[in-house]
């Protein structure tokens, strides 16, 4: 079924009754993110990619876990927050990133209750890429700019609007909601090619792990400032810290995004640090993205969104690293 361009606003209005809609929004000249739809204007569906990924919808930058009281009779009260939300216009790379976070937070022996509750109330409406951005490389990471299989609903660009494909029960509910606004017809535009190409392969992932002591890690880490921008902007980076705000006798325990690029991240009481320098930290980040996560969860933790490549103040580029490693270790495709 096809949703014509002129029916976008009516379609969003119908959706708005189901929950808060978050759409790609330019915050200022430099920064864009998923922000609440204003209820009337057409969202900017040409943005490839938003500066900030949509991960904070499911995994807030800072999230209260429980309130506590230590004065008098101590007490604990869990914070439960799971607003109904619709992420609208999520690119295939970011849709896959949500799939990666699901693997971590919804499974692997324990379910993370905070994430699970939010996740249950979020609907993901993905949007194919008619064109790709200057640092996009999802098709080198096993994705396609024209597919988002883990999204609830996929909107594929046509000449006059979008093909609507429901992919889950939540997606079918949205398609049903839109049935009077959609009609037969329309043909999806072919997938564009990504701007960046890189030579990633399973064989290279294995080789990188076995080359743990290779000089390549010394070479690549030189430029790193340890600023954490890559992890902050990465749609799949999910590490968190747990801390508290204490107001004398009562407070809130919260978790917040953390970064494996910070030295404090692994430093133990007493001072020992298993990843004491940026070499160990960058190596861990790259290996986590390219190899460790796949060993554990069966898929690669880089979705090729290109944010880290585009925003690193030192111009560190994971695709350049992959190519360098593939060439050096003879693991090119």
């Amino acid at each position: 079924m096809q949703l014509k361009r002129e029916n976008l606003i009516p379609a969003l209005r119908l959706l708005a009754a189901q929950g808060e809609i978050l759409v790609p929004t330019a915050v200022d000249e430099k920064v864009s993110k998923f922000a609440p739809w204003d209820g009337s204007s057409a969202p900017d569906l040409a943005l490839v990619n938003t500066t900030l990924p949509p991960k904070d919808t499911l995994f807030p930058h800072q999230e209260g876990m429980y309130r506590y009281k230590t004065a008098g009779e101590p007490s604990l009260e869990e914070i439960v927050e799971a607003p109904a939300r619709i992420l609208f216009g999520v690119r295939p790379c970011d849709a896959r990133s949500i799939d990666c976070m699901d693997k971590v937070f919804l499974g692997d022996k324990y379910e993370d209750a905070f994430y699970a509750r939010r996740r249950a109330n979020v609907t993901v409406i993905a949007h194919t890429c008619a064109q790709t951005g200057p640092t996009c490389f999802c098709d080198s990471m096993g994705l396609s700019p024209a597919e988002a299989p883990s999204a609830d609903l996929l909107l594929s660009d046509t000449e006059t609007g979008w093909l609507v494909t429901a992919q889950t029960e939540k997606g079918e509910a949205v398609a049903a909601l839109w049935k009077d606004l959609t009609a037969e017809g329309g043909e999806a535009a072919p997938a564009p090619a990504c701007t960046l190409k890189t030579n990633m392969s399973d064989a290279l992932a294995g080789t990188l792990v076995s080359r743990f002591e290779d000089p390549i890690w010394d070479e690549v880490c030189h430029a790193c400032l340890g600023c954490g921008t890559c992890t902050y902007l990465c749609p799949t980076c999910y590490c968190f810290d747990i801390n508290h705000e204490d107001h004398g006798g009562e407070g809130t325990q919260f978790r917040c995004w953390d970064s494996c690029m910070f030295s404090d991240y692994t430093r133990m009481a007493g001072g020992h640090n298993p990843r004491p320098s940026k070499k160990e930290r960058l190596r861990n980040r790259y290996l986590h993205k390219l190899a460790y996560f796949k060993e554990r969860y069966g898929q690669i933790l880089c979705v090729g969104c290109g944010r880290c490549v585009g925003h690193c103040p030192s111009h560190l580029d994971i695709t350049a690293f992959i190519d360098k490693a593939a060439e050096r270790f003879g693991e090119g495709k």
């Binding site: 937070f105 993370d112 968190f240 190899a291 460790y292």
Partner: peptide
């Protein structure tokens, strides 16, 4: 460790 349940990320050795 922060979480203890394999989510927060920091206590990894390899995978």
């Amino acid at each position: 460790m922060k979480c203890g349940i394999g989510k927060c990320g920091r206590c990894n050795i390899g995978s």
